[in-house]
Design a protein around this nucleic acid. Structure first.
Length: 350
DNA sequence: CTCATTTGACCTCA
DNA sequence: TGAGGTCAAATGAG
């Protein structure tokens, strides 16, 4: 744990540096861009990236103050029986068998994260934002003060694998194309195949029902760009998946952006993340170098929560369809520390 | 037939 | 006590 804490400081420094550097580069690019006049879309993209960089940098600075307490809070929440343990979800399921009277006994604190996802027009529907997991809607609720109802989803594998991950999807009042997605709990369902699927379109057969194919957004030749590489958020942010309509728009800028992101990711992760995938080189090239046909910029604003939430992260992908997964591909660096009982073998670090 | 979604009711918590 | 979260029966889709 001490090791991780010291690493955190180092990380954040790198993050800060990277974000500011990126911001500078983006500003430079933007300036060139404006001079040479191309599409306004691209300009917006650059601006959003620019803003993202500065916001990230600021958030790192802001978070720096209370990071210690934050970690402690996370540790408290990490009750061994809550998630990650293969036996605990099953025990919870057995609780459910005891009819709903027992279900509300006591809610377990779950790690929570919020993301803001902007979708391409006509591509995503509420809750169907493809984040690589298969979700099942179990409820919908009108939220006070919110224009749109909130949808409640849980992992389809809840019953079969005891996966306790849930998410809440709510359309933003201000911008209906933005979905606020709050992820709660960790996926304990099989993820290896999903990850493989994200790296490589040729997928292995995953243990699970055919209809529960989390790779569906990757199965028809979409180019997937996963720009959400700022795992600096206590390492809890794991590369999201974004799916796009197969509109082959590629710009030089995008390619450059990808390189920047890849560099940052590598910087942040020190290669250890990619290690999880078996081949860092493959991971980077396949996962980061993909270019989005829809230019999308991440505008992430990290928001600290006042309650027991571990982290709330807001992400905006200006033209993406899918939101990012819960950061709990199970192998987040932080997850490993915070949730040592994660039974996902892929989550274990050497 | 199986599974997902809808929706009203119920439960917990602040 | 009200808002938010969850359950489960009813319904629909494939």
């Amino acid at each position: 744990m001490e090791k991780r804490k010291s690493m955190m400081g180092n990380w954040e420094q790198k993050i800060l540096k990277s974000e500011l550097t990126q911001g500078k580069e983006l500003a430079q690019k933007l300036m060139n861009h404006l001079h040479h006049s191309s599409s306004s879309q691209e300009g917006e993209f650059l601006i959003s990236k620019l803003l993202s960089s500065y916001e990230k940098a600021l958030s790192v600075l802001t978070r720096d103050v209370g990071s210690e307490g934050e970690i402690k809070q996370i540790q408290v929440l990490d009750s061994p029986c809550s998630f990650g343990n293969s036996s605990s979800p099953l025990s919870e399921i057995s609780d459910q068998d005891c009819k709903n009277k027992n279900v509300f006994k006591k809610r377990k604190p779950m790690p929570k994260r919020t993301e803001e996802v902007k979708v391409c027009s006509g591509t995503g529907q509420d809750g169907s934002l493809d984040d690589g997991y298969s979700w099942r809607k179990y409820g919908q609720k009108d939220i006070l003060g919110a224009k749109y109802p909130r949808g409640y989803y849980r992992c389809t594998h809840r019953n079969t694998q005891g996966c306790l991950a849930t998410k809440q999807v709510q359309k933003s009042d201000a911008d209906p194309t933005i979905f606020m997605v709050t992820y709660t709990g960790l996926h304990t369902c099989h993820l290896v195949a999903q990850l493989n699927g994200k790296q490589n379109v040729s997928l292995k057969q995953e243990a699970g029902t055919p209809r529960q194919t989390p790779e569906k957004s990757f199965s028809f030749g979409l180019r997937v760009k996963t720009e959400n590489l700022d795992t600096r958020e206590e390492g809890k942010k794991i590369f999201p998946s974004f799916s796009f309509p197969p509109t082959p728009i590629e710009s030089e800028n995008n390619v450059v952006e990808d390189h920047v992101f890849a560099a940052i990711a590598n910087d942040f992760l020190g290669g250890s993340y990619a290690q999880t995938f078996g081949s860092p080189a493959t991971f980077e090239s396949d996962y980061f170098a993909a270019v989005s046909p829809c230019h999308f910029g991440l505008v992430r604003n990290d928001v600290q929560t006042s309650d027991s939430d571990l982290t709330h992260e807001i992400l905006s992908a200006s033209t993406s369809v899918a939101n990012s997964p819960i950061g709990d591909f199970g192998f987040s660096l932080e997850d490993l520390d915070f949730y040592p009982f994660e039974n996902n073998p892929e989550s274990t670090f050497p």
